[in-house]
Structure formats: C-alpha cells, structure tokens
Amino acid sequence: MAISSSGLAAFHAVAQAESFTKAARARNVSQPTLSAQVRALEEAYGVRLFDRVGRSVKLTPLGQSLFVITARLFAAEDEAEALLAGVRTLSRGHLRIAADSATHVMPALGRIRDRHPGLTFSLSIGNSSDVLGQLLDYAADVAVTAKQTSDPRIRSVRLSADRLVGFVRGDHAFADRSSVPIEAFVGQDVVLRERGSVTREVFELRLAEAGVRPGHLLEVQTREAVRDAVATGFGIGVIFGAEFRDGEGLARVEITGADLAVAEYAVCLEERRRIPLVRSFMEAVQEET
C-alpha cells in the first residue's frame, strides 16, 4: 500500500502545530479537509496517531515515532527546495534555535536580524543533552550547547572558552572572598542545573576528583532559577562565568584548585548545513570566534 503524501503532510502539520485549527490555518486549508486527511491516514493503516481531547490533540506513542520520521522527511524536502532554487538572499523564513543559554546565542541572532529583517526566530532553552536531542530529532534547525560531541551527523563550531564560577548572596560566608578552593565546598549547600547540564556534569566530576562532599544539593531547571535560588539563600550557585550578572546583592566567587574550563559550541546537522538559514546562522556565530 502506497502511503498518502497528503496524509503525511497533514499529520506533520498537526503534530508540529499541536492543533488542527492552527495547522489548517498554516496550510491554508479548511479544518475539515485537514481532519479528513489525517483520519484517512489513520483508517488506511488501522492506527491512532492523535489522542483528541476537546480542542487539544496529543500524539500517541506511534504518532511520536512517526513525527520523528516526518520531521526528517520534510526537513530534507526543504533542503532540496532551497538547493534547487539556488536561494541567495534570505528575505523570509523562520529559524528554530535550541540553546542551553540565551547569553551565547543572542549576539548572532541580532546580526542575522539586522542583515535579513524578514526572518523570524524561535528560541528554546534547555540543558545541553536536551538541546542536542532537539537537533537530532529535527525539532531545531541549529543549536548552541556546551556539550562537545564527536557524532559524525553533527557539524560543530567552537564559539567561546569559559570557566565555571560560584556566586553567593551577600550574607554568605564566602561573600567577602574573591576566591575559594574547591575543598571549601565540603558541607556547603549548592544550587545546580538538572542532570544533562554540562555545568552540573563538570562540577560534580571535579568535586568527586577532589574528594569533596557538599551539603544539600538543590536541582533547578534553568540558569535563571539558579540565580533566584541563590538570592533566596539556598546556597552557592555554579554557572558559566559569562552568565554571571552583578546585582541583587550577589557576589561572584572564583573557584580554585580544579579544572573548571568549559566552552560553547554552535552545531547543526551535517546534512542540513547548506540550507541558507542554517548556513547564515553558522556564519554569524563564527564572527564572534
């Protein structure tokens, strides 16, 4: 049985928009037409691709697996269209960026926007492992991450070198010290990103190498939450040096006696590097290096 291309396209649009209404608007078709195309695909194979609850839709496990495939399929179609059309200017388009921090990506986006004001952007923030996962799942066009990878599917450009630093609230015992040895973390409460973050991966490894056992560990989901937790008095925060901002009564503390060097990388899929939007981003970030 030959699979329906219109059915796949309709399925992909709904999965991407998470809504039949939004998908129909994006494809410039009526919602009944789009619904019929998806229903025909489901009935042809005797499967269910979406759970429909009121006006909301959610992918079933089978639908999630199919979405990974259609994302690759339509990404390749976009690349082929761009290649054959020989696009030389970027007068329109939408670039999806995944990053583990907005700090390292905003300058490049600003340059691209100034050169190509017709472009739009969406930025998703997550830990380094999630960011690479989005790229490999075709949920992002490009990414900025601190996680170095040797995966041959991924093209990587080093953006910057950095170092992990600590920071504390003004009433903390370390607040009046410009630096502390890593051994000083014994028994100290620490605020870190969740597992999958390079910050946490590197810092926990260095603590283990030094034989240091800290006190309580508070795990949070974003760097902004690390800052908020430290400001509330939950302990010592650890972040990239470039991400620390003065203010709110917080003091930066250098950590000595351990290799806390880290870096940021701009990455894209090797197979998609010639797409004009992707190429433009990778060129823009390299201007910083």
Rank of each mutant, 00 (worst) to 15 (best):
L62T: 05
Q64L: 14
Q64Y: 09
S65K: 14
S65R: 15
L66M: 13
L66Y: 09
L66N: 06
F67T: 09
F67K: 11
V68K: 13
V68H: 11
I69S: 14
I69R: 13
I69D: 15
I69N: 09
T70V: 11
T70C: 05
T70Y: 05
R72A: 13
R72W: 03
L73Y: 13
F74E: 05
F74M: 02
F74A: 06
A75H: 06
A75L: 07
A75D: 11
A76V: 13
E77D: 10
E77M: 10
E77H: 11
D78K: 14
D78N: 09
E79A: 15
E79R: 12
A80D: 07
A80N: 11
A82N: 09
A82Y: 01
A82I: 01
L83D: 01
L84A: 03
L84V: 10
L84F: 04
L84D: 06
A85P: 04
A85D: 14
G86M: 01
V87K: 08
R88L: 12
T89N: 13
T89V: 13
L90D: 01
L90V: 10
L90K: 03
L90F: 01
S91D: 15
R92W: 06
R92C: 07
R92T: 08
G93P: 05
G93Y: 02
H94F: 11
H94M: 11
H94Y: 11
H94W: 11
H94E: 10
L95H: 00
R96F: 09
I97V: 15
I97S: 02
A98M: 08
A99P: 01
A99C: 13
A99F: 07
D100N: 15
D100Y: 06
D100L: 06
S101K: 00
S101P: 08
S101I: 09
S101V: 13
S101T: 15
A102Q: 10
T103C: 08
T103E: 15
V105G: 03
M106A: 12
P107D: 04
P107C: 06
P107K: 04
A108C: 11
A108F: 05
L109Q: 02
L109E: 01
R111I: 09
R113W: 03
D114H: 04
D114Y: 04
R115Q: 15
R115C: 02
